[in-house]
Nucleic acid binder design. Structure first.
Lengths: 153, 153
DNA sequence: GGTTGAAGATTCAAATATGAACGGTTTCGA
DNA sequence: TCGAAACCGTTCATATTTGAATCTTCAACC
């Protein structure tokens, strides 16, 4: 019968390869736009967005790492870079001295504002505008389920 | 009116974030599986797959770079690693001495065979099995269009 | 109260990625 | 047939990522 290690069906393979390719290509466009408009890398941008979405514009390092889906040591590096640029500030957490607050600064918020219109434009042009309205919702549903399922492991 | 730099609509944002998250998470699973089953990284695996799909199991470096969607210098590095492991062999191209053939070896094909069932299992469990049959096709159509559009730029 | 183990974050060395610059071919028009 | 321009791949210096080891603080348990 059908073993899960068997080759994918052609239409399954097509979906998988399209998913992979679209990911690579969109990432490339985003990287280019962020660099051009604000000298940010995609990981840096994601860190800033993560903070901007948080209560009080700050998160503990490990929570931020979870949100941005990045390893602890990688986040340490990124935040150090962002701190050097004045976009993020580290603060001690008095209620748990093991942890550290990473907080979005004014300059960080400004950098985000500077870069966001172009970012949205890329997402729109590369993804949203290419999809029919129903496809947008279906993509959100389907990939939302995929992500949710992988998160709980 | 609606400027392309304006915030995304909630359902658009949802689709975009799901796409991003699913990409990150699936990539993580794949990385883990490939490392575990065959000591390969995802980029290395993609190189081997690219070659296995080519006529005569070989491609010129720059064509391989295009197929795998990777920069020239990154590919040079990856192929050097794969050559060290005996999975790929470089050969001179007599009809155009600027270019170089990268060819999949027996050992490379064996490594691919060793790793592929687990890889497919990951793709199945993470993506395919979570989608309804119509969703698979629709995803392939939609993201296929997205990729195709980005390729021609 | 002291001890053990978990959680949080950083550090370090090694691996990988980036992008500009380079040297060797090929192409093609003057 | 010559020379400029394009193409191919690598190299090099720098930046980023990885994962194991480490250090500090906290929680729980006795």
């Amino acid at each position: 019968m059908n073993d899960p290690g068997d080759p994918l069906e052609p239409h399954e393979l097509r979906a998988w390869m399209a998913f992979l390719a679209a990911g690579h290509l969109i990432d490339y466009e985003i990287e280019r736009q962020l660099k051009r408009d604000g000298g940010l890398s995609h990981p840096e941008f994601e860190v800033l967005v993560g903070l901007s979405l948080a209560e009080g514009n700050r998160l503990r390092m490990s929570d931020l790492a979870r949100v941005v889906m990045v390893s602890k040591s990688r986040l340490t590096y990124q935040v150090t870079q962002l701190e050097r640029d004045g976009f993020v500030k580290r603060t001690e957490n008095e209620s748990d001295r093991r942890s550290v607050w990473a907080e979005l600064t004014e300059e960080g918020a400004a950098a985000l504002a500077r870069v966001r219109p172009g970012h949205r434009r890329v997402v729109r042009e590369a993804l949203i505008e290419v999809l029919a309205p129903e496809e947008i919702d279906l993509l959100g549903d389907a990939l939302g389920r995929v992500a949710e399922r992988l998160r709980q492991r």
